[in-house]
Computed example of a mutant assay.
Amino acid sequence: MMSSNNNNGKDLNFDINILPILDILSVLICFLLLTAVFVQIGTIDTRQAIADNSVSGEKNPPSLWLTVKSDGGLTLSLRDLPGAKKFEESISRSAKGVNWENLEARLQALRNKWPDLKTGVVLPEAQSSYGDVIRVMDKLKQFNFEGVGISPLG
């Protein structure tokens, strides 16, 4: 006897195998957890550059100003330091860019000579490397400069 089904003897019920989908999801969750562990958001605490207080009459704190040149050279100058004559010196670039060893030696010498010097302002030129500017700010923090700022204007 023939069946009156239109499906030619095939059953319309079937099972979906969800194991491959679960495998893919478990691998993706592992990747998500691992990448979340390795991602860090680094921040540098900066302040606005020292303002011009010629109108208010207040004195700015003694500060070290570092000009980051586009070729990797640096210029260090001291401002508002009582009892110190005008100080400005240049650090020429090394073969690899900024001469970091020379910068560290100069920062250490300045901190030893003037322990009250705790403010550092970085003045990058327009074509300066962003990585160099951040690394200069990091060096200032490394030598215990509490107020590290960046100024777009000289």
Rank of each mutant, 00 (worst) to 15 (best):
N102R: 15
T43Y: 07
N5E: 15
N17T: 02
N60M: 03
K139F: 10
A51E: 10
E104R: 10
L64D: 01
A109R: 07
Q48V: 10
E88P: 02
G57I: 00
V55R: 02
T43L: 08
L140H: 05
V98Y: 01
G131Q: 12
K69P: 08
S4R: 13
I134H: 07
K85S: 12
G9A: 01
A51W: 05
N8M: 10
D45W: 01
A49G: 12
A126C: 05
N13L: 15
L19N: 15
C30E: 11
W100C: 06
S26P: 12
D116I: 08
F14P: 09
R135N: 11
I150Y: 00
P115I: 01
A95M: 05
R79D: 00
R106Q: 09
Q108L: 14
L33Q: 06
Q40S: 11
I134S: 10
D138Y: 10
K59S: 07
G57H: 00
N53C: 09
G149V: 01
V121R: 08
I91P: 00
E146F: 03
A84V: 06
S92M: 07
V68S: 00
G72D: 00
D132C: 06
M1D: 10
S90W: 04
D11P: 12
S4Y: 10
N99W: 04
E146A: 10
L107T: 01
L22V: 09
S56N: 08
I50Q: 06
V136M: 03
V121C: 10
L33M: 05
A49K: 03
E89Q: 07
C30P: 12
E104D: 06
L117E: 02
V136N: 02
G149T: 05
I21T: 07
W65L: 13
S128W: 05
I50E: 09
K86A: 14
L34I: 06
D52W: 03
P82K: 05
G154D: 14
G149K: 05
V98H: 00
Q48E: 14
L33P: 01
N5C: 14
L78K: 04
A51R: 11
M1S: 13
S54L: 03
D138S: 14
G131F: 12
G131H: 13
D15R: 10
L19P: 09
S54W: 01
G9S: 05
N6Q: 14
P61V: 04
I16C: 04
A126D: 14
W100I: 01
N5H: 06
V121I: 14
P20R: 02
P61M: 07
D15F: 08
S94L: 00
L81R: 08
N17H: 03
L74S: 04
G147D: 15
I18F: 11
P115M: 03
V39R: 08
S77F: 05
D138G: 12
T43S: 13
A109N: 09
D45L: 08
L64R: 00
